[in-house]
Computed example of a mutant assay.
Amino acid sequence: MRYGDGRDGMYGWIWRHLPGNLWVRALTSLVLVLAVVYVLFQYVFPWAEPLLPFNDVTVDGQ
């Protein structure tokens, strides 16, 4: 896949639309990733945890 052929996907689109030079884009993308991780751990995972079957464990023979 060549650069700029229109198939670079979502991350290429995000990178192109971030403002600033390379270092500003890198810092902005790091902040965005940290914000997504924060939202996942604080809101999404606690909401989804009761819906997941990880705690439904059956142990026979005890």
Rank of each mutant, 00 (worst) to 15 (best):
R16G: 06
V33T: 12
V31C: 07
V31I: 14
L27P: 00
L32Q: 08
S29L: 15
V36H: 08
V59C: 07
V31S: 11
M10S: 05
G20P: 01
M10C: 04
G4K: 03
G9S: 08
L30Y: 05
Y3R: 13
L34Y: 06
W47V: 03
N55W: 06
Y43T: 07
V36P: 00
A48M: 13
S29P: 00
F45H: 12
V24M: 14
W13Y: 14
G20V: 04
V33L: 11
Q62H: 10
L32M: 15
Q42P: 00
Y11C: 09
Y43H: 11
L52A: 13
R2W: 08
N21W: 09
L30W: 08
L34Q: 12
R2P: 01
V31P: 00
G4F: 01
F54T: 08
V59Y: 07
P50I: 01
V31N: 06
A35T: 14
A26C: 09
L32V: 07
G9P: 01
W13F: 13
R16Q: 14
D8K: 02
G61L: 06
D60E: 13
V33N: 07
Y38D: 08
V59I: 15
F45S: 03
W23Q: 15
P46G: 02
L30G: 14
E49D: 14
L22G: 04
V33A: 14
A48I: 11
R7H: 12
R25Q: 12
E49M: 08
M10V: 14
G12K: 02
A35R: 09
V59S: 04
L27Q: 12
P46I: 01
L30H: 08
D56M: 08
S29I: 00
W15S: 10
L27V: 07
G6I: 01
P53M: 04
W15H: 11
V31A: 15
L51C: 04
R16H: 10
G9I: 02
V44E: 05
G12M: 04
N21I: 02
G4C: 03
W13T: 12
M1T: 09
P53W: 03
P50G: 04
S29M: 15
V24H: 10
V39W: 10
W13R: 12
F45E: 13
F54C: 04
G12N: 07
E49S: 11
P19W: 00
M10A: 10
R25A: 01
G9H: 05
V39N: 09
W15I: 06
W23G: 02
Y43K: 12
V24A: 14
